[in-house]
């Protein structure tokens, strides 16, 4: 695997009129491998959404650089190529749907890229099938549930055939069922099509499904590793204002009591398995 998105010593601050710019990221470096599924976890205001916007040149670093597939986001001539490679899905599904019919909305992206009509037709159908929304292709987006709208937004991105999708809290406004559907869709895109995924969330159960979890706090990386290792750091996570997996938390309490529970427990299922052996 090679690096697809590379943050090199990025510093970034939002400019507000008449005020000192607040630094959001300071000397931030991160490398995302091609085909990887990386979750970024952090509380509101930790800088994770800024990372998303830096990924396809919506924001440009004040110092350092962001490289996408070898292209520097600072170079304006690179932007079209970068945005073909990296698509972003935002939190609020209502803010990113532009058309009055589902399939028109999905066609919006490839149309703007100048794709042939025949090819657009094929891509729209494929994309809608991929996210499980093909049966709703003639529906009016405002009549869909939040989770369905979010899957339409994802279809709009994959119709542009990007190598990488960045999702900025795509499930924050959804109900439990909608959250599961979106999560499954994203996992499938990563597994079946090898699309690189950068998944920003504050739900630890979603981050646990990634290959790699990065925990951010105050604009820098606090923890970085496979979910099983990262989520053992209960105290650090709590200090960063995040939830910890309750199974891990209970397992650690029981271990302190002297109960033998070998290994790093992450899920409720794993804990049930081990506890059953102890309790029988």
């Amino acid at each position: 695997m090679s690096s697809f998105i590379e943050f090199q010593h990025v510093t970034f601050a939002y400019e507000t009129e008449g005020e000192q710019p607040k630094p959001v990221l300071h000397d931030f470096s991160l490398s995302v491998e091609k085909g990887d599924f990386v979750a970024i976890l952090g509380h509101n205001g930790c800088g994770k959404s800024t990372v998303a916007k830096l990924c396809n040149g919506i924001e440009i670093p004040q110092s350092g650089c962001v490289m996408v597939d070898g292209l520097d986001t600072k170079v304006e001539d690179n932007l079209l190529a970068i945005r073909q490679r990296v698509g972003i899905v935002f939190q609020n599904p209502d803010n990113q749907i532009v058309a009055t019919i589902v399939e028109d909305d999905v066609a919006f992206g490839p149309e703007n890229l100048g794709v042939e009509p025949k090819e657009i037709r094929r891509r729209v159908d494929e994309a809608l099938k991929d996210v499980g929304m093909y049966d709703h292709r003639f529906a009016e987006p405002h009549k869909l549930s939040g989770g369905q709208k979010q899957r339409v937004a994802i279809a709009g991105i994959i119709a542009m055939q990007p190598a990488c999708i960045v999702l900025d809290e795509p499930t924050a406004m959804l109900d439990p069922r909608g959250r599961k559907d979106v999560m499954k869709t994203v996992q499938m895109l990563n597994r079946e099509f090898g699309i690189t995924v950068l998944f920003i969330t504050h739900y630890m159960d979603e981050a646990a499904k990634a290959n790699r979890v990065i925990v951010m706090d105050k604009g820098s990386i606090l923890l970085d590793g496979v979910p099983r290792d990262v989520f053992q750091q209960c105290d650090t996570l709590r200090k960063a204002g995040l939830d910890v997996p309750q199974a891990t938390s209970l397992a650690q309490l029981l271990k302190q009591d002297g109960v033998s529970l070998p290994g790093k427990i992450l899920t409720v299922e794993e804990l049930a398995e081990q506890l059953a052996a102890v309790l029988h």
């Binding site: 997996p245 209970l250 409720v268 804990l271 059953a276």
Partner: peptide, 29 residues
């Protein structure tokens, strides 16, 4: 009903499935 039950309640249900008699009306760590 498709509702998300608390994680701890879920744990207790799984233990019951494994033949361990535990109450299921607890919901915090």
């Amino acid at each position: 009903m498709g509702l998300d039950i608390p994680q701890m309640t879920h744990l207790l249900l799984l233990l019951r499935e494994k033949g361990i008699d535990v109450p299921v009306n607890l919901y915090t760590v």
